[in-house]
Nucleic acid binder design. Structure first.
Lengths: 117, 117
DNA sequence: TGAACGCGTAACGCATCGGTTACGCTTCCC
DNA sequence: GGGAAGCGTAACCGATGCGTTACGCGTTCA
């Protein structure tokens, strides 16, 4: 799936689809490359699960499938320590794996303080 | 840069580097492909800006450059509806912190018990 | 019903990618 | 100094990717 967003044409298509559905022809006419070439890019996006298609008569309407993007974003999140929602996702993982151990240490220290007070 | 994460070998390297610095050799020996092949993957990662390298004697240590990941994550963010999973993430995050506070209180009580025993 | 439309697929050529082996340059160590 | 260690680069080769043109198939409509 990561390979699907590696191509600049496919990334442009994804940006187009962000604002709503488009038919294969509407997408193709915004590029200078041939229509079959765009058609195959759409196929790659389809098979990667990033877009879904609905048949409407003799046309085929494409739209984003946001679920896959969340997957990718989640994978990417493990590398981003400090900004925006990616950080919160990473922090959440850290919380899950680290809290138990750290909590014991910190609470013990806190309690020692309280006891000595 | 998006093309850099399209290759599975490079993604594995990034995951390795998440836990700390590694030399080219240490990375290469974890793969079954030849060392020069890994070396070129490292070059791609270097030129894409996803990793940085520091020369240490005759070795070369690699580490992640988190800034580039943030860029990619930001681009990806435009496809994830803010009212969707991100909102749920906020709620989940709140839940984690609330739970942690509750457990701190409970553990403190438990520890008080132990101390009194 | 037949012609035009919308879209995908097939076949093909060329560039890029990812693997290999052979080699060169520093750096460490006896 | 000289050999071994660590790493990158060069040359080569098969596989893959992206572009093209030619074509097929279902849908629309006069």
């Amino acid at each position: 799936m990561a390979g699907a967003i590696a191509d600049p044409v496919r990334r442009r298509i994804l940006v187009m689809l962000r604002d709503g559905r488009l038919s294969a022809g509407e997408i193709a006419e915004r590029f200078e490359i041939s229509r079959p070439a765009v058609s195959r890019h759409l196929r790659v996006l389809r098979e990667s699960g990033l877009v879904r298609d609905d048949l409407a008569g003799r046309r085929r309407l494409y739209r984003l499938d946001t679920g896959r993007f969340a997957e990718l974003a989640e994978w990417l999140g493990q590398f981003v320590p400090a900004s925006g929602w990616e950080h919160r996702l990473d922090a959440l993982e850290t919380e899950v794996y680290r809290t138990r151990r750290e909590r014991r240490v910190r609470d013990t220290a806190d309690q020692a303080k309280e006891n000595s007070a």
